[in-house]
C-alpha cells in the first residue's frame, strides 16, 4: 500500500530534508588529522596567545580592542574547528553550536548597546 501513495499525490515533495544524509554530511573520519597536526595547531594557538598578551602591553590606542577581538575570534574558531572537529564533521553540529553562539552575541550585544549608547 505504501508504495502506491508515492505515485498518487502531488504533495509529497515540498522540500528536501534539511538533515538528510548527503555525502558531505557524513563525518570524514578518514580526513582526521594526525597527532602531529594537533601539536602544531596548539603551537599556533600559543603564539596567538603570546601575541595577544604582547599587544596588550604595546601602545596601540584605539586599534588594541579590535586586534584583540580578532585574535580571540581566530583562537576560538581554531579550537572549535580542529580540536572539536567542527570542520570535518557534519554541518548540523556547526549549525547547532554557532546558532547558540551568534544568538548569544546578537542579543547580548544589543542589550549592552541599549545601556551604553541609546540611553538618554
Amino acid at each position: 500500500m505504501s508504495t502506491d501513495t508515492t505515485t498518487t499525490g502531488t504533495e509529497h515533495h515540498f522540500g528536501e530534508d534539511i538533515t538528510a544524509i548527503e555525502p558531505d554530511a557524513i563525518p570524514h573520519e578518514h580526513k582526521d588529522l594526525r597527532d602531529r597536526d594537533y601539536v602544531f595547531i596548539a603551537f599556533l594557538l600559543l603564539i596567538l596567545t603570546a601575541l595577544e598578551v604582547a599587544a596588550s602591553y604595546i601602545e596601540l590606542g584605539s586599534l588594541l580592542v579590535p586586534i584583540l577581538l580578532i585574535m580571540m575570534a581566530i583562537k576560538f574558531v581554531t579550537v572549535a574547528s580542529f580540536f572539536m572537529h567542527l570542520r570535518g564533521d557534519a554541518r548540523i553540529f556547526s549549525w547547532m553550536f554557532y546558532a547558540g553562539l551568534f544568538l548569544a552575541v546578537g542579543v547580548y550585544a544589543a542589550a549592552l548597546t541599549t545601556f551604553h549608547f541609546f540611553a538618554p
Binding site: T19, I21, I92, M96, Y98, A99, G100, L103, A104
Partner: peptide
C-alpha cells in the same frame, strides 16, 4: 539515526550551543 549522526554528539552540541547563552549572559 535519521541523520546518521550520533544522538549523544548531537545532544552535546545542542547543550554547548545553549551554554553559549549562559556564559554570554
Amino acid at each position: 539515526t535519521s541523520t546518521g549522526l550520533s544522538n549523544t554528539k548531537l545532544a552535546m552540541w545542542l547543550f554547548l550551543g545553549s551554554e553559549c547563552l549562559l556564559f554570554g549572559g
